[in-house]
């Protein structure tokens, strides 16, 4: 078994490891780095439970190799709370009962964060389209949509005029 060295920035900190080329990014994060907030739900890139940000773009980490992410900057659910303050999406999912078992929640929040970065003022349909790659079995999505809209409103209110789109 040959290994390759990977160096990634995860939630702002440089992390390194020697890995098999076939190691999936989700396993690098979970099994090597111990960041177990990112989950695996389907193996075929349908459910989105493993969604993280790679260089600012949402990605399904079960469908990306760790070596593909070498050199990239990665944000996981563990990187969303800043300075002891919940990200507006984390707060909104809590406020709006946007989660039940919590298993899809990290992926759902990461995808929502990407969505609001690209579309700060989405319609409900935009929101549903934006999370169509993330399956939730518990909530029926109603409260997830509400939560994302709550966070969207808060993020818009906290951004200077016209700067919202840049905050992916």
């Amino acid at each position: 078994m040959t290994t390759q060295h990977v160096s990634v920035t995860v939630n702002g900190a440089v992390r390194e490891a020697d890995v098999e080329p076939r190691l999936l990014l989700v396993h690098l994060l979970r099994d090597v780095f111990g960041l177990t907030g990112t989950h695996t739900g389907c193996d075929t890139s349908n459910c989105g439970a493993c969604t993280v940000h790679v260089n600012g773009e949402s990605a399904k980490s079960c469908t990306m190799l760790a070596v593909q992410a070498n050199g990239a900057s990665i944000t996981t659910i563990e990187g969303m709370e800043q300075g002891g303050k919940l990200h507006p999406l984390q707060q909104a999912f809590w406020d709006q009962h946007g989660l039940q078992c919590g298993f899809c929640t990290p992926g759902m929040i990461m995808q929502s964060a990407w969505l609001l970065g690209t579309n700060p003022d989405p319609t409900d349909h935009d929101v549903r389209e934006g999370i169509a790659g993330n399956l939730c079995r518990c909530t029926g999505y109603v409260n997830i949509v509400k939560a994302i809209q709550q966070a969207a409103a808060e993020l818009r209110a906290s951004e200077p005029e016209g700067a919202g789109a840049a905050s992916a």
């Binding site: 890139s45 989105g48 969604t51 773009e57 949402s58 990605a59 399904k60 990306m64 995808q111 990407w114 969505l115 389209e129 934006g130 999370i131 169509a132 790659g133 993330n134």
Partner: peptide, 9 residues
Amino acid sequence: IGDPQVRNW
């Protein structure tokens, strides 16, 4: 095509 994550990559 696919979903937003698929379209991103």
